[in-house]
Amino acid sequence: MPEYKVPEDLKYTKEHEWAKVEGDIATIGITDYAQSELGDIVYIELPKVDSEVGQMAPIGTIEAVKTVADLYSPLSGKIIEVNEKLSQNPSIVNNDPYGEGWIAKIRISNPDEVENLLSAEDYMKLLEEVA
């Protein structure tokens, strides 16, 4: 299996999104494995600011040259900010999926849902199965 980055301090979904929870704000994006599987990302349909989203609801799409994937919200809440830079330069997600390639920030409405997400360790196990 190739080496994929899985930062310790993040939470993960089975659909290969990550969430960084700080207080009631979660920053979200897609994982290193996800960007690698998609390949060159050419367009990201970002979620709408101020929209209310449910946990694991589809909130956007990610188009790569060969394929397209839905983006799911790891947590319920309200989208308060999106990474506008990705409209012009979606390849940032390929280059830095956990940093400059963040996709959106959510004000979370139900902190208990964080428990439904995978830890870095669990996500690594998932990758060992799928990758």
Binding site: G39, D40, V42, V65, K66, N94
Partner: peptide, 9 residues
């Protein structure tokens, strides 16, 4: 091989 680094490159 489907790609080495990047389809676009």
């Amino acid at each position: 091989p489907v790609l080495y680094r990047s389809i676009i490159d």
